[in-house]
Design a protein around this nucleic acid. Sequence first.
DNA 1: TTGAAAGCGCTACCAG
DNA 2: CTGGTAGCGCTTTCAA
Lengths: 342, 342
Amino acid sequence: MSQLPEQSARTSVPTSADVARAAGVSRATVSYVLNDNTTVRISDATRRRVREAASGLGYVPHAAARSLRAGHSRMVLLPAAHLPAVPLQQRFFTDLQSDLRRLDYTVVQYGSAGLDADEAVRAWAELRPVAVVAPGGVRLTPQGISVLTRSGAKAVITLGPQPVEGAHALVLDQRGVGAGAVRHLLARGRRRIGVVMPQEAGLALFSEPRLAGALHAAETSATGARIQPLPLRYEESSAAELAARWRALGLDSVFAYDDEYAMLLMRALQDAGVEVPAETAVVGAGDLMLGRLLRPRLSTVRMELATAQPPAEMIDRLVRHPGGAPERHDLLRAETVARESS
Amino acid sequence: MSQLPEQSARTSVPTSADVARAAGVSRATVSYVLNDNTTVRISDATRRRVREAASGLGYVPHAAARSLRAGHSRMVLLPAAHLPAVPLQQRFFTDLQSDLRRLDYTVVQYGSAGLDADEAVRAWAELRPVAVVAPGGVRLTPQGISVLTRSGAKAVITLGPQPVEGAHALVLDQRGVGAGAVRHLLARGRRRIGVVMPQEAGLALFSEPRLAGALHAAETSATGARIQPLPLRYEESSAAELAARWRALGLDSVFAYDDEYAMLLMRALQDAGVEVPAETAVVGAGDLMLGRLLRPRLSTVRMELATAQPPAEMIDRLVRHPGGAPERHDLLRAETVARESS
DNA sequence: TTGAAAGCGCTACCAG
DNA sequence: CTGGTAGCGCTTTCAA
């Protein structure tokens, strides 16, 4: 219908005013109809005219304008860690996302790679999210939390190995993983236990608590067991080096951080003539398929997320009743799966 | 300073007007100072006063209001696929994200799990992104592209095995992976080649083109080689079943889709007494660490992303000069790595 | 049952 | 050098 191509090009993004004009009604009516507002009664004929005009023009409401007017958004922000997430976290996010959507939140992942902590928090705050769920690996300080809160976030929640002062916390306590592995090895009669510490950046966040759990389990066992941290890069050469001096270390078992490092190390040990499990028992973590395919089959610590209340509901509750004391929920359950390697 | 707690709570999110009041200047001046607007000259004293007032109040600008006023955003939207991304895509996204940030774009991942195609596209359009990069696994129809374009997106780009009519395309052509594997096996004298087809939802997007490439390579080789698709679930039982009827299939080699399926199948074949590579050669894809740790070491097809122009620059160019014909760029380079399993 | 108008927070004109 | 002000697209009173 437009006769001026260049004008129609400039005006090409249709607004509710365009819909109103096309339907011969006011912008208010358009808003009522498209939002199914029940407090006001509109004739069916008008409803249809508005709907047809909207779809005819390809009208899509402008989220920014809407939330500006409303004074709040329903955006839940998930700052993406710049480091590779563990598969468990990946699945957690996927589930959280669809659960939140069902509660009518808009979930947005925001990558902050290449920003320092302050810039990143500012960038998040500019989006005025109603809630922020920050995974481990994202540096969130108490003052960062304050910036977010003061910019209108009703709930700030950390997700990771340890809580942060002032925020709610979904804790994936990795200590139980290390403790589970060590208790299993102790029960098998092992007493000199190595703990692999990946040297890859970012994994320290997980490996340190696992080591701490291992140490604690050994100390409280009253067996006199010894824990020996073993730095390892995820490379064959690094594993071969470690294997070469294995006998000198005098270890009878090793918790290999996870199944992949376990596979790497087990192969190097076998190549160096160290018998698994006879001479050295090996335990991984994560219960990946590959552990079942190895020979000997890999013992592992399986991890599961157990939640009393689904995280999405918790977030919804915190958003609706903000201001309570920081909550803390432990999500991670660790369970040892004994196979042939230990 | 506020004496009414409940009022200060409601008004707690500071606006540029609050900053202006605190600094004793107008909102315009605040905007000029905080945006380092150079077309207007402001005294250093005023600048400092404004800056101090802003940080004192914890002022953070409101992105929605800003882009509403500006009439455009610099948001690049990455609809997140609901299925697990291949590691290669994961790295691609991370890199793209930081490159785009360097070009001053805001990158946002939007999870559309649980929405059908139309709803999803509408939801994206509501955010008024300046560009959309849709990975494979996200269903994007020509009419979806039109909705996005008409809502102001300057560039719509697909990323995946095959392009979509009307959008620019970053193509990860999986056919070369299958073709590379088959050519390698043909060169090794193999003629009856199985191709593993994962039965997991979502992988068909990758496995079908790989099969097509394998078929094409066999046909054009003039060797009379035969290609046999082999459905397989990522479970030990499924692999064992396949291995049990292996000899009846009469195959002398197999392209196992990727390294993980290769490990699964190779283990099952070995358990069934089928010698690798003597009786059956095995090739994976992805060049994972685990392939190097298997015995025999796994031959694989390594995949790399080779780009003439970095994707971020391409997007920036398309945003600045919209309206050109759809571009298509092939990103995937496949290269066979021969080890011991073939 | 519908329309007019105010205003969310911000920036960019134009006056002073 | 700084301030007043219009208006981005939308929703929601209040009037008609």
